[in-house]
Design a protein around this nucleic acid. Structure first.
Lengths: 131, 131
DNA sequence: ATACATGCAAATCATTTGCGCAGTC
DNA sequence: GACTGCGCAAATGATTTGCATGTAT
């Protein structure tokens, strides 16, 4: 009876697998190219559809850094991101989330706060070396 | 000699004026509709072009909350934003920015941190009342 | 057998751009 | 007059969707 209206598919499994194997926070296009190596007939539309399914199931997170293209992440432990302003790379920050931020702000405003999103911007180690 | 290659234009002035008069963090489309009331022939392309000019001049800030549409803000004092997950409204938070965040993270990572972006998500006062 | 999922192509939405004309310096 | 900005319409790029067919349960 575990019918939640979702059937497994080779495509979705490959998409998730590819995402699990990288730390690059890739775009749908990037995932498409990788999965395509194994399933040459897959279409970009299928990649998008499945990324949404996975996101709805909570297996994948959608990221948006205002670049005009969304990125995806299969590593769900709460963590912040660092975006290099030179090369665009996105890195996970291995730092515990600031536990008290929501409460500190909550005390000051009438809005009911559920979550926060914190991104850092700067120059990555690579780009520092190259300058 | 103050020729930086930019000439004034009625359109740009009206766009900035409209943005200065609202706290709604509007989209280009919204600004377009407002300015249009005074300059009926203005085109959406002109709005986008001028928003970019103003942003480059540092008179306007471009905001992106991952909604698929950018928003614009003429209030430049550093502040955080609150996005209502029900109605989509964006509010400025009248709270001093967390001064130590960059340094706290900087000590823990090799990346060179210039800035951070912190947004809050939840339910606004209006939507709380309506539920 | 009955959904749900896919591939393909066309559609959508926000934003950008080329071009000939108009406005500013 | 030289150069920047405009309006318009067409182009772009990311993402979504309709539809006929394929696949999982």
């Amino acid at each position: 009876m575990s019918s939640n209206g979702i059937k497994r598919s080779r495509q979705r499994e490959r998409i998730y697998h590819v995402l699990r194997r990288t730390r690059e926070h890739p775009t749908a296009e990037w995932i498409f190219e990788r999965v395509r190596e194994e399933l040459p007939k897959i279409s970009l539309g299928t990649v998008y559809r499945n990324l949404h399914v996975l996101a709805k199931q909570g297996m994948v997170r959608e990221l948006d850094f205002g670049e005009g293209t969304k990125r995806y992440d299969a590593f769900l432990s709460p963590h912040y991101h660092f975006v290099c302003e030179q090369c665009g790379t996105v890195k996970d920050l291995e730092v515990a989330p600031l536990a008290d931020v929501n409460e500190r702000i909550q005390q000051l405003v009438p809005e009911l706060i559920h979550a926060h999103k914190l991104d850092f911007y700067g120059t990555c180690a690579n780009c520092q070396a190259a300058s």
